[in-house]
Design a protein around this nucleic acid. Structure first.
Lengths: 347, 347
DNA sequence: TTTCGCATCCAAAGCGGTTTGAAATCGATT
DNA sequence: AATCGATTTCAAACCGCTTTGGATGCGAAA
């Protein structure tokens, strides 16, 4: 059942039917109702392909996911972000298209999205410092919203981000207040912007209290269980081990905990841990009392917000860039406690 | 730059240019080369919207993700599957469209995908017993491939699945061989088909050795860290605790481990654990020696295979359903060992 | 020389909607 | 009765590609 058939059946022109369905004013209310009723009765759905061609809009938003060497992005955090964004898209009649491409094809993927007309805009994931994709998207002329920020970018752009610096600064200060003097940082990859900001927060907090900053207590790697385990193990086995850890994610946190417990130490008593908690649905940080003390900010919400921002950007191409800085909550859980009197026992 | 402009520039008709670019035989080789060269030079990309309308194909594959109450599906396993499938799609010039919809809108989502013409086929995720979506998709006439199987489905369908029954049977037998007599099952939700099969494998193995089957040792819940923790905690605190666990996923496995270590027990010595390992990229089960003994099968590969199957199904609509049963490897790691002489000490 | 078949190329008709420009209707105004 | 403006409807062009059904030109066969 298409527009033309429906129009014939109603004894109307396609023009009028189209207008009736799309709420244009120049159609008699009685006619409109007749059309609406017939459309419903015959279960008419306009063909998206035709709409897209006729209007020149894609009615779709793209997410490009580079793969291969750098698979960092296909992670659980990304999945939750997508879930949040996807919700917003389907509520607004937009499709979400995911482009999973090899690393080196990322630029071409964005160009194709534009030139082949399959997306009206994109969300930029995992921004790095001086991210080249920002000038690229400007050049291409594809509206976009960045999830995170890209320090060093000269051109203006819209973004949604968590205040990573402040979150980690607060977390560090919280540990310092508990008397911890040696705090290990188990960070994400530090070419990622958010990781840089987190380290800044950590460093700032230490500097603010005139505490020494020890490179041996700062590690940076992918946010996997294994990486967390390795980083924590190395620091715990070093001559002057930390009494607390600041960890980039729930997942690396699991690895850190494994390293701690494997050494016969008790979490929250011998060693304190604060993680950043993206509030992932299948990886909830505890029920009544959270497992981990954490800086929490829902990445799914961030997805929703970024999607809304992008849709409004697409609707009003003239509008200037928007920004949204989300603050993380500091959630107190079971994994932190006062610093032990003597350094944690070595095994 | 569109077809018509390119044709004018070349002094050819759009027909010929189109044919030249699409490899049709009725065009002079010299002309074809001239066209190809011009296309490249002017950086011509055919407009996908127009192709879709003209050919009646969507050049896209849909994945419907029900949300809300049942958020089980937006999980890390799903993310890796998507990554695998997405790779295949973009290699073949297909788009992947993700439809994140409220639970109750799932049926409509499939209908819309078809009637509005936005997808040529879909992948069906997380099949349940007698899954109603299988007859639905048959009725709609949308080609599909199921990731997993749906016991009880009467209509034929294509699927890609892991031999879950055999994997869990082997794992159980492995534990029995080590002398474990009480093995706890920490399963996924048992309205999901894969979870049913896994339980069957577990039960079959016990029955095969004439071992008692104790309902107190069988739990079923979402595959989250918390659920794993709770299930294992409950069993460990019961009067006759298990000496080994069989666990549905890496993530629940982390929770199980937490429960074990929290009780001062040592993994692989006091309590043995085997998990099912989907070989997730950011949750690798160890380096040289895996953390967990596991039944391993890459869900990303499954995604690739399912996508290929679907694309060939779309290409040859006549072809009968295809099936692909993947076998899981049994990987020996550090989490299993002989059953302790006496039951594990209670705390 | 005419005819035929083949290799090339093209005009035009879709695909299923939207949108422009104009026509038809009708009550109100002159 | 003629004019006017507002309301309502429609025919046709258009979006950018594919594809059908010819044209055209040319060498080989008759």
């Amino acid at each position: 059942m298409n527009l033309k058939e429906l129009a014939t059946k109603l004894g109307l022109s396609p023009t009028t039917v189209s207008r009736a369905l799309n709420g244009y004013p120049e159609v008699n209310e009685a006619t409109r109702e007749r059309v609406m009723a017939a459309a419903k009765r015959h279960n008419y759905r306009p063909n998206t392909r035709a709409i897209r061609l006729a209007t020149g809009r894609a009615l779709a938003v793209g997410h490009v996911i580079p793969l291969a060497t750098r698979h960092e992005i296909v992670n659980p955090i990304f999945a939750d972000f997508i879930a949040g964004a996807g919700e917003t898209y389907s509520r607004n009649g937009y499709d979400m298209i995911l482009s999973v491409v090899p690393d080196e094809a990322e630029e071409q993927a964005y160009r194709d999205l534009k030139s082949r007309g399959s997306a009206d805009g994109v969300i930029l994931h995992a921004p790095r410092m001086n991210d080249p994709r920002i000038p690229l998207l400007h050049e291409i002329g594809l509206p976009f919203v960045v999830h995170g920020r890209a320090t060093g970018a000269e051109l203006p752009y819209s973004w949604v981000d968590v205040n990573n610096r402040r979150a980690f600064q607060r977390a560090t200060e919280f540990l310092l207040d508990l008397g911890h003097a040696r705090i290990g940082l188990v960070n994400g990859l530090e070419f990622m912007d958010f990781a840089i900001r987190r380290r800044t927060g950590y460093v700032d907090a230490l500097a603010g209290r005139a505490m020494p900053i020890d490179p041996a207590l700062m590690s940076s790697d992918e946010m996997t269980e294994i990486s967390g385990y390795r980083a924590a193990s190395a620091m715990l086995d070093a001559p002057a081990p930390p009494t607390a850890f600041l960890v980039a994610s729930m997942i690396s946190g699991m690895g850190v905990r494994r390293a701690i417990e494997e050494r016969g130490l008790k979490l929250g008593r011998d060693i304190s841990v604060i993680i950043h908690d993206d509030d992932l649905s299948y990886m909830k940080n505890g029920g009544d009392v959270p497992i981990f003390t954490a800086t929490r900010s829902s990445v799914r919400d961030a997805g929703r917000i970024a999607a809304e921002m992008l849709l409004s950007l697409i609707a009003q191409p003239g509008a200037g860039p928007e920004h949204r800085l989300l603050e993380a909550e500091l959630i107190i859980g079971q994994s932190t406690g006062p610093a032990p009197r003597s350094p944690a026992p070595k095994v």
